[in-house]
């Protein structure tokens, strides 16, 4: 119970199957407050399904998913989980393309999400400052009025991270933030995530080993829906089973 009480995210024995295929198989994972964790694993290891379970998109067949040691995430839907303080960045950048960069941030900005409060919503000065701050962080200040759809791939990735920042969740789930980025962009993204991790808990799913090394955090290796190994990148890359999974086939 001690592990449970000090954890931010606690998965125990989570199993998800689709038509007999087990996407997650008795998966257990604990992420502490303020921790940044990298999840790696080959295709089909269950990384995205795990994210789906945490964010309420997929209901597990069995197992516990607890947030902050008390809230049962399997009983909540996506919006409730988001309001609880879990933000998610998708693998392929998904921003609201027909909104301006500014509006994307405004929509994500922490605040009431009800229908009538948004019908009569006006931006306060504090919120404007916060938006400027986020835009500066993701280096999109000078493109704030452009349509999000007109941004480059890398900029969309950053805008999505910016939306996460504006949402200010306790836990960020980041799915392959470096996909499709140049080396320079990848390094900058790693730096950005490290900075975010100073004030938030972060779970990063990534293929790119250089990027994971840049992050310099504890690594969990998934394979066939369960945890294969856990530890520093050097430890897990020395693990024989991990080598077999990555290279053996």
């Amino acid at each position: 119970m001690t592990e449970l009480s000090k954890s931010l995210l606690y998965l125990d024995g989570v199993t998800v199957s689709f038509d007999g295929f087990r996407a997650l198989n008795n998966l257990s994972l604990v992420v502490g407050h303020g921790e940044m964790r990298a999840i790696i694993g080959p295709n089909g290891a269950g990384k995205t399904t795990m994210m789906d379970v945490i964010t309420g998109k997929t209901r597990p067949d069995k197992g516990d998913v607890l947030f902050n040691g008390e809230r049962d995430l399997t009983k909540l839907d996506e919006a409730e989980i988001a309001e609880l303080g879990i933000g998610r960045k998708f693998q392929r950048p998904t921003v609201f393309e027909s909104h301006s960069v500014l509006d994307n941030i405004v929509l994500a900005l922490e605040g009431p999400r009800g229908v009538f409060s948004s019908l009569f919503a006006r931006l306060t000065g504090r919120e404007c400052d916060r938006i400027d701050e986020v835009l500066a962080t993701i280096r999109l200040s000078d493109r704030r009025d452009e349509l999000a759809g007109s941004l480059s791939h890398g900029q969309k990735q950053w805008l999505e991270i910016g939306m996460l920042l504006a949402q200010d969740p306790a836990l960020l789930l980041v799915d392959e933030p470096a996909a499709g980025m140049t080396d320079a962009e990848t390094a900058e993204t790693a730096a950005l995530l490290r900075r975010i991790a100073e004030t938030h808990s972060v779970v990063v799913v990534e293929h790119d080993m250089t990027f994971v090394r840049d992050l310099g955090v504890r690594v969990t290796v998934l394979h066939e829906g369960s945890v294969l190994a856990e530890g520093s990148l050097d430890q897990v890359s020395a693990d024989e089973r991990v080598i077999e999974v990555y290279l053996g086939r």
Binding site: T55, K57, E78, A82, V95, E97, S98, H99, L107, Q167
Partner: peptide, 19 residues
């Protein structure tokens, strides 16, 4: 703006907390 967000990317809108 939320409506347009729903139109263009419904589940994304859910994931940032809108019902």
């Amino acid at each position: 703006k939320v409506l347009v967000a729903v139109r263009d990317a419904e589940s994304r809108t859910r994931f940032i907390g809108y019902r």
